[in-house]
C-alpha cells in the first residue's frame, strides 16, 4: 500500500485533489481511498487530505502518518506545519513555490519544487493549483496515469473548466517527465 498526504489551505482544493487522484487510481484498476482531515473548514486555514493506493481492499481508517508522497500546495505552510513529518525513505514531496529554497526533508526524500501557481494562472486563469499538482504527481509517482487523470477531471468539472484544468495538469506532467523544473 502507498500513501499520499496533501497539505494545503482551505479553498485551494486539497480535498478535491485527493478525491480526483483516488478516482483516477481506481479507474485504472487499483483500490483507492481518499478523505480529508476533518477540521473546521475556513478559507486559508491549513488543511490536509489523504489518499491510499493498494492492490487489495483498503481497510485502514486512520490518517496518514508515514506517507510515501506529500504534496504541499502552498510553501508558506512549511513555516507552520511539519509537512514532511514521517515521510518514508525514498518518498517524493511536491512543493508549489515561486522561489525554491532549502528544505529540511527526512533522509532519502526527493524534493520536486516548482511554480504551480504560474502554470495554473496561465492555463486556467486562476491561482488554483490542485489540478496542476495532480499532473505533477502523476508524473513523479507513477501511481496514476495522465489518461485516468483526464477522465477524473472531466467527470468532476464542466466542459471548458475541465479542458483548462487538464491543460494545466498535462503541462505539469510533461514538465516533470522531462525533468524541466
Amino acid at each position: 500500500m502507498k500513501e499520499l498526504r496533501i497539505h494545503g489551505r482551505g479553498g485551494q482544493g486539497s480535498v478535491t485533489a485527493a478525491e480526483l487522484i483516488a478516482t483516477a487510481a481506481f479507474t485504472a484498476g487499483v483500490f483507492s481511498q481518499a478523505f480529508p482531515a476533518f477540521g473546521v473548514e475556513r478559507r486559508g486555514a491549513p488543511v490536509q487530505a489523504f489518499v491510499r493506493f493498494s492492490d487489495e481492499k483498503i481497510r485502514l481508517r486512520s490518517q496518514v502518518y508515514e506517507p510515501d508522497y506529500v504534496i504541499v500546495q502552498d510553501s508558506t505552510l512549511i513555516r507552520d506545519v511539519n509537512v514532511f513529518s514521517g515521510m518514508k525513505d525514498g518518498g517524493i514531496v511536491l512543493i508549489n513555490t515561486e522561489k525554491k529554497g532549502e528544505y529540511n526533508v527526512p533522509a532519502g526524500v526527493k524534493v520536486i519544487a516548482f511554480d504551480a501557481t504560474k502554470i495554473a494562472i496561465e492555463e486556467i486563469g486562476l491561482p488554483i493549483t490542485n489540478t496542476t499538482l495532480m499532473g505533477a504527481f502523476a508524473a513523479a509517482s507513477g501511481e496514476i496515469t495522465l489518461e485516468a487523470l483526464k477522465g477524473a477531471i472531466e467527470e468532476r468539472f464542466p466542459g471548458k473548466l475541465a479542458a483548462t484544468n487538464f491543460a494545466a495538469a498535462k503541462r505539469a506532467y510533461e514538465m516533470i517527465k522531462e525533468g524541466a523544473y
Binding site: A18, A34, F38
Partner: peptide, 12 residues
C-alpha cells in the same frame, strides 16, 4: 456508519 470516517470517504 461513522461520520466523516465513512460518510466523507471516497472508496469503491
Amino acid at each position: 456508519f461513522d461520520g466523516f470516517i465513512l460518510s466523507h470517504v471516497y472508496e469503491p
